[in-house]
Every structure is written in C-alpha cells, then in structure tokens.
Design a protein around this nucleic acid. Structure first.
Length: 365
DNA sequence: TAACCGTGGGG
DNA sequence: TCCCCAAGGTT
C-alpha cells in the first residue's frame, strides 16, 4: 500500500502543491474564478487537449460570457463556435444546462457537487472539477491523468478503467485532497500527468511524488496503468461529392441524433461505415479529383476522395437522399464537421465559387 | 455494460 | 503510415 507510513503519504499533497505552484502552465481558464467560465473550460477539455481548447475557450467566453447569454443564443451560432472541436453534443448540452439554470432564475452554477452532476453534460469528473476549482469543495476530479498518476503511485495491477481499479484510485486520491486547496490539488494531479508522469515517458527525477511512488521503486511505471483493452480501430475509403450548379453547392442534412447530429454536409459514402447514397459509378468518373480528406468517428478512420461534380442548370444530384443548394455566404456561415470544413476550404481555394470576404478579381473562377 | 460520440498531435 | 492518446458523458 501507499501508506507505508502515513507520514510520507501526508507529505504528498504539500509536495505536489509546491511543485504545482512553480510548474503550472498558463492557461486562460486559470485567470478566472468565475464558475461559469470554469464550467465551459472543463467541458471543452473533455477528451480534448489543452492546447486545442484554449483558442475555443477565448472565443466562446467572449461570445457567450455568462449563463444568460448562452441560454439565449442561437444554436447554430453555438455550433459554429464549437466547429472543429468534436463531440458536438457537448455544445448542445452546455446550452441545455444553461437554459435549465436560467429558467430557475439563476445566472450562475450551483456550488454543490450533486446539483452539478444533475446538469446535462456534467459527469463525475466535471462536477468534481467545477465544485473544487470554482467553489473550493473537497471532492476529487479524476481524469485520465489522475488514473495514470495514481495507478503508478499504487503500482496498481487491476485495470484502471474497471470498477475495482477505479475504486482503489478514488479512495487513495480522495484521502489526499487537502481541505484548504482541493481545486489546486486536482489540477496539480492533472498537470503532473500531463507534463511529467506521461503515458510513454515517466520523468521520475522531476516528480514531486517520487518518494511515495511504488511503481518507481519496482520499476513498473511504464507498465501502469493496466487498461482494459477495447476494440481496435478500422479504416475505410469512400467518396465525398461537391455538386456544383452555377455558384451553389449541394448539402444534405444529417439526422437529429447520432453522428454530427443535425449538421449539414457534402454527400459522402464510405461503406460499410455509412449507408450507401446509391451513387452511380459513372458519377465518380465525372468528378474532378480535389484530393483526400480524412474523418474519424467511434472506431472508424475514413479517407474520402473529394470529387467536384458540375451539374446542369436544372439538374439535381443523382442521389437517394435529399438536400438543398446553398451559396458561398451561407456555406461559410454553416457549422461543418472537420472533414467538411477541409472540403469547403478546398472549394474556396479553387475559387470555384466566390469566397466571402475576399474581393473577386479578374481571373478568379 | 459496452458502444457511441470527433479531432489533431506525437511516437 | 498507423496506432495511441486526450482535463469524459450518455445511452
């Protein structure tokens, strides 16, 4: 066990906090105590690297500075602000929660772990993070970093992503949280996992907790955490079609649930990942190759060859799905998936349709 | 419970 | 290139 003596264990939190205060990286969400902004940052950081979330955080908190403005915002505007960040239900759940709060007459978040947990899009990690960082409540916020750090401290042989392993981690983690600095402690664990106690590297000589780390003593740090293996990814190839009619392109709308829910997109197919569009083979020969875009979801990695297909003035795409024609202004304003956004960029780069905001010069198009 | 839900960077 | 990984949550 970690508490070979409670003495060294009790020295863990102070040592970690001292290290954190000198080593922590500057992030925009570390410059605020506003529970709303801390909530936004924690949701953005779900399964997302800090470096990517930072730019989105700045823009979002400027566009939607508080609960009320988020609750009253146009949903498409929200998704545009989230465009490219992935897991778009996070943005929808943020607004759903904001509406709940606004309806109950609040313009902020509850300072209570279980009330936070009850809000859409907030699970055990995020509730713990907001409660501890914004309100000073001594509850754990255990993410993948925390699981790795404590798997190593304990030299945990049980899978860290199964109930037994999670319990062992949570028990030790909770016992170390100092009442006077729970938010800093939670962040310090994550910071340690993100900068020192890394998955493929363990810089133990720089670690403030090395003196109580069992995996370090036993030389098993890189074998921890043990994880319950999930299914491997699969790859597929397909096509994405940009149908062009005069200066408009064709978009279809996705279902309101599931992958890229409610988004519009250039028609694409990549069997067996997506239902067939019923595309005639001749269509592919008719298209001009614009290169490849990649997209990924769940276990799929898909490469889509992008084809530009010019159609006649009254011709509709020979597809089994329905969609609509949009001009360049609207196309630019729409939220698209990352792959769709790259296809759109190719389109504007070719100046096949006018690029909004850029003067059309002779020779363009 | 296990599958689903995105994306980009690093080894 | 491919695989792993990331401040997880929902169904």
């Amino acid at each position: 066990m970690i508490n070979e003596g409670n003495r060294s264990k009790n020295e863990g939190a102070p040592a970690l906090l001292r290290w954190y205060h000198s080593a922590k990286r500057p992030f925009p969400w570390r410059e605020t105590g506003d529970p709303y902004k801390i909530w936004i940052s924690e949701v953005m950081l779900q399964q997302t690297q800090t470096s990517r979330a930072a730019e989105y955080y700045r823009r979002w908190t400027e566009l939607f500075p508080d609960v009320k403005s988020l609750a009253g915002a146009d949903t498409e505007e929200l998704l545009k602000a989230w465009e490219g960040l992935g897991y778009y239900s996070r943005a929808r759940n943020l607004q759903k929660a904001a509406k709940q709060l606004a309806k109950s007459g609040s313009n902020s978040l509850p300072g209570d772990y279980f009330k936070l947990l009850a809000l859409p899009g907030i699970g055990p990690y995020t509730a713990g993070a907001v409660a501890s960082i914004a309100f000073g409540i001594p509850v754990p916020a255990i993410d993948a970093n925390g699981r790795r750090v404590f798997s190593r401290l304990l030299d945990l042989e049980e899978p860290a992503d199964r109930p037994a392993g999670e319990r062992a981690i949570r028990d030790t983690f909770s016992s170390m949280i100092p009442d006077n600095a729970p938010g800093d402690f939670n962040q310090a664990v994550m910071e340690l996992g993100a900068t020192v106690c890394l998955p493929r590297t363990a810089a133990c000589s720089e670690c403030p907790l090395v003196f109580l780390c069992l995996a370090h003593i036993r030389g098993t740090a890189l074998l921890r955490p043990v994880l319950f293996r999930k299914e491997q990814g699969r790859s597929a190839d397909g096509h994405l079609f940009i149908f062009l009619r005069k200066d408009r392109v064709y978009l279809r709308k996705r279902p309101e649930k599931g992958l890229w829910a409610g988004f519009e997109e250039f028609p694409w197919e990549a069997p067996p990942a997506e239902a067939s569009l019923g595309i005639p083979g001749t269509l592919i020969e008719r298209g001009a190759d614009m290169g490849t875009v990649r997209c990924s979801f769940t276990r799929w990695r898909v490469r889509l060859r992008t084809l530009l297909v010019p159609l006649g003035e009254r011709e509709d795409p020979p597809l089994s799905c329905e969609g609509r024609w949009v001009g360049s202004d609207e196309l630019l304003a729409l939220p698209l998936s990352s792959a769709g956004g790259r296809a759109r960029k190719k389109l504007f780069g070719l100046s096949v349709i006018p690029c909004p905001g850029r003067p059309v010069r002779a020779g363009d198009g």
